[in-house]
Design a protein around this nucleic acid. Structure first.
Lengths: 185, 185
DNA sequence: GTCTATACCACGATAGAC
DNA sequence: GTCTATCGTGGTATAGAC
């Protein structure tokens, strides 16, 4: 067990970045070892398999999401919470243009494999969706489930197109549109 | 040069299906050879590299898109052309739930590599986008570019979520919403 | 707990017989 | 043109010294 060392943490952090940039399949254990400054063979002291690293990365994404959600929930009403949520993709516009959405692209990749990792990534995406839907419900919308899906789908689609067209301005424009849409709701 | 043989065609067709189902990285030449009934070593008579096969697959997608577009363009007005366009994802709802959008997921995967294939897949996605934008322009909309992006982004996002949640009904509902939106435009 | 060296295997690609 | 056999590389995972 990792004790007084931060190597475990460094490995997960390196894997998180590399997987976002290169995808899970393209990222080798050697890449992760190098980026985190841990010798290759030593990686197996912390993780039994490559899949275990990916699993830890998804867990980390989930923790980060929960921490952000706790921040957004400090807003006094659901509409402002949703607007706060939109700050996330806005702030990531450049990295989205370069590598897409870290959670959406990972989920899509893992869903092509038959590994149980896919389910875990899907749950992460579902956590985003559920949180947004909850806000729409608190707004009193009977069609909260559809609205939430519409919002997350738009963000995922915009990320994909923004990445394919390599144009961060797409994120700006479409998020602005979503803000207007929210305000008017 | 392939002449009186359909092996070339069978290889591309097999690769197209397998890449959609498993992704490009996960699909091996052995898979493609087996599915198309061509011996492994013989694949290299038709394609110099694995990338060349992917390139041919993307070309094939492009041809199919152009053929469909030619059909849609038989509709008398742009609104009906856009509605006809939406029949495609509707008809594919089950395979989208199983494996995502064949062009969107491929583009996202290839954009994580540094290969020139990414550009080719991006062009395919852009062809879809350009066609839709053209229809909005012919509808007389000054914001045609935004509307087109909004529509393609929605479809891509819906495909991704539908795949992650494994629920084809999501496609039905959201396409229905898009139809209503179009009618009202 | 840490690191080196290496086993082992899958896959892309090639050689060369027919 | 077709197919078999095989090479070489690179990547996951392990053995075992320190």
């Amino acid at each position: 067990m990792p004790r007084n060392s931060d190597k475990h943490e460094r490995l997960v952090e390196a894997a998180k970045h590399l997987i976002h940039q290169q995808g899970f399949g393209q990222t080798t254990l050697a890449d992760i070892a190098e980026e985190s400054g841990v010798p290759l063979g030593n990686v197996y002291y912390y993780f039994k398999t490559k899949d275990d690293i990916a699993s830890a990365v998804i867990d980390e994404h989930m923790r980060e999401f929960r921490a952000l959600a706790a921040e957004w929930e400090k807003q006094p009403d659901p509409k402002r919470r949703l607007l706060a949520f939109l700050d996330m993709p806005s702030a990531m516009r450049d990295t989205v243009a370069s590598h897409g959405c870290p959670v959406g692209s990972l989920a899509q990749e893992l869903n092509k494999e038959h590994s149980p990792l896919a389910q875990q990534a899907d749950n992460l995406l579902k956590a985003h969706l559920d949180w947004v839907r909850k806000q729409f419900r608190e707004l009193g919308r009977a069609d909260a489930d559809d609205l939430g899906l519409q919002m997350i789908a738009t963000l995922q689609g915009v990320s994909l197109l923004c990445n394919a067209l390599r144009d961060p301005v797409i994120v700006d424009r479409q998020i602005k549109r979503l803000r207007v849409w929210l305000e008017a709701l």
